[in-house]
């Protein structure tokens, strides 16, 4: 007799319970993925970064329009055109690291007793680029878009100084070559910005401090960054010209084949001359002789 009266309240209560539990879970699983859920300080950092970027882009647009103008007026004024090409070449030299550069900036020095992993170096580079570094080097290596950073284990047990057993020591490599201590990273840019980017609370220096690594940061009024010594040969990349592709697509099949043959022929020619040069660089690059003391 009692049972039917029981059912209703219990059902209601459990229903509520279920709803609340699910609400609870929802509140907890939701995680921030868009701007509305970011912290204020992060938003401020984004605004700052984006404003700087906008400013630089505006300057770039001015540069480009000047270049375009001098290009268009080249028939009258060849000198102007030369100057504009010179300016563009200088910018590209900085990006490609083809010549030695100087300027103010900071150095980050890591001594051999400081534990460091190659990913730390990657992170430091990343922070420096983010802080507006314009050119960076690690010891004698200019950092470019081809620079690789890795590590290798070297056996320190050699004939010259024998150890009781094999002792492998990790070394950091840049462009497949061991970098010797002290590792000195030089970066050209605003010294204050660059320093802050590394030392801000919770930044990379704080993270390294957890491992008892305290790289030495020095602000410099002028430092010299070497040119990139390694040669880069592009085997796979070629410039993409959408108009040409469309044209060849629209053409008859036979023409297409001809085009393909032509480009193939060109490519193989280019490759032949390049392979020789590559062979030379490869042998130079073969990185580490494990028996040699670094």
């Amino acid at each position: 007799m009692n049972k039917p009266r029981w059912y209703l309240p219990i059902t209601i209560v459990f229903l509520f319970l279920g709803i609340m539990l699910s609400l609870q879970f929802q509140a907890q699983t939701r995680y921030a993925n868009d701007l509305t859920l970011q912290k204020t300080e992060n938003l401020i950092a984004m605004v700052r970064g984006l404003s700087e970027k906008r400013q630089k882009l505006a300057l770039e647009i001015i540069d480009l329009s000047n270049q375009l103008r001098s290009q268009l007026e080249s028939s009258q004024d060849e000198q102007k055109l030369l100057e504009s090409i010179q300016l563009e070449t200088e910018k590209l030299e900085i990006v490609n690291g083809t010549v030695e550069h100087k300027g103010p900036g900071i150095t980050v020095t890591i001594e051999d007793y400081m534990p460091i992993y190659y990913t730390d170096i990657l992170n430091i580079l990343n922070e420096l680029w983010n802080a507006g570094a314009e050119a960076i080097s690690i010891n004698e290596h200019r950092v470019t878009s081809h620079t690789t950073i890795s590590s290798v284990k070297i056996n320190l047990n050699t004939e010259r100084n024998p150890l009781s057993e094999d002792f492998y020591m990790p070394y950091i490599t840049v462009n497949h070559r061991v970098v010797e201590y002290p590792i000195v990273m030089k970066a050209i840019g605003d010294p204050n910005n660059l320093e802050k980017a590394l030392t801000f609370p919770g930044g990379i220096m704080d993270k390294l401090a957890l491992f008892d690594t305290y790289p030495v940061i020095t602000k410099m009024e002028e430092l010299i960054i070497p040119a990139d010594q390694s040669s880069h040969i592009h085997f796979f990349v070629s410039e993409y010209k959408p108009e040409e592709e469309e044209a060849s697509k629209n053409n008859a099949d036979s023409k297409k084949e001809n085009n393909a043959k032509n480009t193939n022929a060109k490519n193989t020619n280019a490759k032949d001359s390049n392979t020789l040069r590559l062979e030379k660089t490869r042998t130079k690059l073969i990185p580490i002789n494990p028996n040699k003391k670094p």
Binding site: L35, Q38, K39, N42, V95, N96
Partner: peptide, 22 residues
């Protein structure tokens, strides 16, 4: 990505050269 490109979190959003990528 070019030489000076950075890949960096601001909060938990990844930015490539200050452009948000999702």
């Amino acid at each position: 990505l070019i030489t000076t490109s950075e890949i960096r979190c601001v909060g938990n959003l990844i930015n490539v050269d200050m452009s948000r990528v999702a």
